[in-house]
Write a protein that binds this DNA or RNA. Structure first.
Lengths: 141, 141
DNA sequence: ATGGGTGCAAATAGTTTGCACTGAC
DNA sequence: GTCAGTGCAAACTATTTGCACCCAT
């Protein structure tokens, strides 16, 4: 029901090599070309036209995520939508109307992390942060 | 592929009534009794013993999430694990070893939100934040 | 020749839906 | 009597897996 490991939010040092094959480059392109990201089924459907099998898409997106080249955000129904990142360890702010996802870097969470460490006794090692809002275009409609 | 709306991170005012039926109370109990939360299939399996159908579990968890009584975090494989909350609009810090999820309230994100608004032109209206780390028990092993 | 990657097809697992029925206002 | 909620079974969607093959080291 639950697989091995990944999902780490930290830039997990890749023990195994993760190659950037032609298929994976194409996958990144397709993700990059969709402002609101794509679900795996959507990506697989679109990439089938390039002759890329769905298993490849599923496996590749996982691998790319481990390399920090791809991240996901949550769509309106809770689905994971995958987005190509230009900076590793970036965060995304998502428009609730058009669902466009825009990267930002600074997350200024270190103070909070300290506070939570103090309150809970955890050592905090990573995080997942998404912001939701409205982009300027959607607001002006 | 994608349904209507929910997933809002803000305490979306519930337009429709969301009743707290015996089944839903039981669902909350079961979630509460699992420190690391449960996936929907896990919860459905366990609640089948109480004669609660799986469709009910899936539908109820969604409803409870809209009421702010339940939240999810991401398990090691990226699965959604649902946790009963005691404070609405709480956040969770999750142990990467035992996967226990612990609530915290202050998220001190308002400064960041302002900054991102300035940088991106978005108006920020909500967020999803999860911290990952190690709890003290796991560290002392 | 080794090990990561790939495509295909099949197998699984996860999730939603239609329907008839119940219980609280 | 209305409307949210429920259980069941069936339908459907999403995801993983086994296997043979490929390519770069």
């Amino acid at each position: 029901m639950v697989e091995q490991a990944p999902e780490s939010v930290l830039a997990d040092v890749c023990t195994a090599e993760v190659r950037l094959t032609p298929q994976r480059k194409r996958i990144l392109e397709v993700l990059r070309s969709s402002p609101s990201g794509l679900t795996l089924p959507e990506a697989a459907l679109s990439l089938a036209q390039d002759g890329i099998g769905q298993a490849t898409v599923y496996r590749a997106v996982k691998a790319l995520r481990r390399r920090g080249l791809v991240a996901y955000v949550h769509g309106p129904a809770g689905e994971h939508r995958f987005v190509a990142l230009s900076n590793t360890h970036a965060h995304l702010v998502v428009c609730r109307m058009c669902h466009k996802a825009v990267e930002f870097k600074e997350c200024g969470l270190s103070t909070l992390e300290k506070l939570v460490e103090f309150q809970t006794g955890f050592v905090v090692e990573g995080h997942h942060l998404e912001l939701f809002g409205r982009c300027s275009q959607c607001r002006s409609k």
